[in-house]
Amino acid sequence: MALLWFEGSAEAQADVDIYAVRLEKNGGELAPGPKHARITRSGLGQAMDPEQLVVTLGNTIEAGRPNEVLATIVSIGGWAMASVADIKLGPDGPVRGRKLNLSPFLNRSNLVKSPLLLFEDGHRGLPSYFELGSAYGVLARINGQGRVCDTRRLTGSGKPIQPMIVPLNALNAVAFLRDLAGSGQLLISRSFDGGQHWTSVEPAGLANPNAPVAALLLNEDLILVVANDDPHGGDRLSLLTYRPSTAAWHHLRELEANGVNARYPVLRLNEDGTILLAYSTGNKTGLRLHHFSRSWAEAGGE
């Protein structure tokens, strides 16, 4: 498996490219190989259809197909002027890129951060968000041709962005959202019809100072969550569980204390049943990985 991240002098600068390392088992432990630039701005610009200027790169997620990713890209301005690009990768970098059509405002301002979902009909569900003045979450449906064929909004309390959607089964799903308005609360919305409609976004009952969240389904009524739950606006990172049937939170352990500035957690369930957790540290200057078993998480981290 590979780990991707964006790297440059600072976030949203014109020297940011996407880097990668391959993680391989070395005596039972996951060890990273040498890092290399996987997507460069110039390489992506030339691979885009139509060919165009790409000034900076941002959050990048797996696209649910081999050698394909979805990335936040910017051609002018800041994150509010970002678009989402579907990028096909070859051995030496992008071989094809195409912006997804998500907005009538010059195809801006949509960003990605959270992993894709799969619908039963084979379509992919892309959690994205609009962030230009106002802000709201979006679940975009992508068809077999890789084209957006429907979108649904997640709106309500605050400025909900970065929807982290966890399907519980074919019909029910939970979305955790970060509040850009700074309410200090994690936000939540639910769907009971396969993502066709979403309840009004509301506080989830967990402190969260406008920080990204990751979540992963452990069983139909237990979700593993990694979030900053500091009610005083710090930057600690905690491992928690959320039970949808009772809306109950359970704090498992503190992953990073205040001062480490741990952000942007990502959770992934591996084919061997283990879970990989990655996040940035030191105000996005470093990366930390945790590798643990699903049963350990289900047992409450004991």
């Binding site: 907005s103 405002f105 003045g133 106002s134 957006v148 429907d150 709106t155």
Partner: peptide, 18 residues
């Protein structure tokens, strides 16, 4: 139409175009 796309109106007219 653009105001609705910005999320300032609850109705999402743009999605009709899919």
């Amino acid at each position: 139409f653009l105001v609705a796309a910005f999320g300032l109106l609850s109705v999402d007219l743009y999605r009709l175009g899919y």
